[in-house]
Amino acid sequence: MAEPIGLERAKIVVREDECKGCGLCIEACPEQVLFVHKHLNRLGYHPTGYKGEGCTGCGICFYQCPEPGAITVYKKGYVGEEVV
């Protein structure tokens, strides 16, 4: 059986409906790959978005974010389903 191939590139997934738009992740991201969406989410905040590339999987945004489930960071080599 072949080894499963992990993620080739790290990525961040933001659950928009859990984001309160505090902006701490955006401010802290060393690669500046996060941005503020123009639209409002269910809670009435402008959620964070990911530019789609450039994430190094450093996890700084994850530990800056006060919401337990708003940000998930997948590092390079991650194998498995996306956490839901």
Binding site: R15, D17, E18, K20, C22, C65, P66, E67, P68, G69
Partner: peptide, 18 residues
């Protein structure tokens, strides 16, 4: 809203909870 905390945006409690 049962999937977010009751804390205000940016509050430190959430980080410590995590």
């Amino acid at each position: 809203s049962k999937d977010v905390t009751h804390y205000c945006p940016g509050c430190g409690h959430g980080v410590l909870h995590k």
